[in-house]
């Protein structure tokens, strides 16, 4: 299958999906399960982060449960201005994720803010910075969230 070719990296990424131990030497414990030593585990994670296979390693926080808020937002960006507008949007620290999609609404991003009222304020600032309207789609109900795809 496509993706990770190194079988050790593949089992490491699978093993690191969740449940990273809250103990003194967690990398050593992960390594024990995979027959790797602690230094090797750390070096492999560092390499996977450096080459972009992993975007992050650590706790995944839920802004909503931390007293903050999220929304999914979308913009219709003229194609000739796309890269410039994407850069402007990306520069906002509130923008956690940003994707180009093939649709009239071609820029879709997630805003995460420490307080609920900050979401609307961020949208106003993004509209001012880009000169384009932003549609906001806050979640009303969550049916399922679990991104676990085999490596």
């Amino acid at each position: 299958m496509p993706g990770l070719t190194d079988p050790v990296d593949r089992s490491l990424v699978d093993a690191l999906h969740g449940d990273f131990p809250l103990i003194e030497r967690p990398f050593a414990a992960v390594g024990e399960r995979l027959d790797l030593d602690e230094r090797d585990v750390i070096a492999r994670i560092r390499a996977l982060l450096d080459d972009g296979t992993l975007t992050r390693f650590g706790p995944l926080f839920d802004a909503g449960r931390l007293g903050g808020a999220y929304t999914l937002a979308a913009m219709a960006v003229p194609p000739e201005a796309f890269d410039r507008m994407a850069q402007i949007v990306n520069a906002f620290p509130e923008v956690a994720h940003n994707y180009a999609r093939d649709h009239r609404l071609n820029l879709w991003f997630v805003l995460a803010t420490p307080a609920p009222e900050d979401v609307d304020a961020a949208i106003v600032r993004i509209e001012a910075a880009t000169g384009l309207p932003v549609l906001s789609f806050p979640k009303e109900r969550e049916y399922f969230v679990e991104l676990k795809l085999p490596a």
Binding site: V13, D19, L48, L54, T55, G58, P59, D62, L66
Partner: peptide, 9 residues
């Protein structure tokens, strides 16, 4: 408040 602790591929 933490969904999980681990790798984000």
């Amino acid at each position: 408040a933490i969904r999980r602790i681990g790798a984000v591929p």
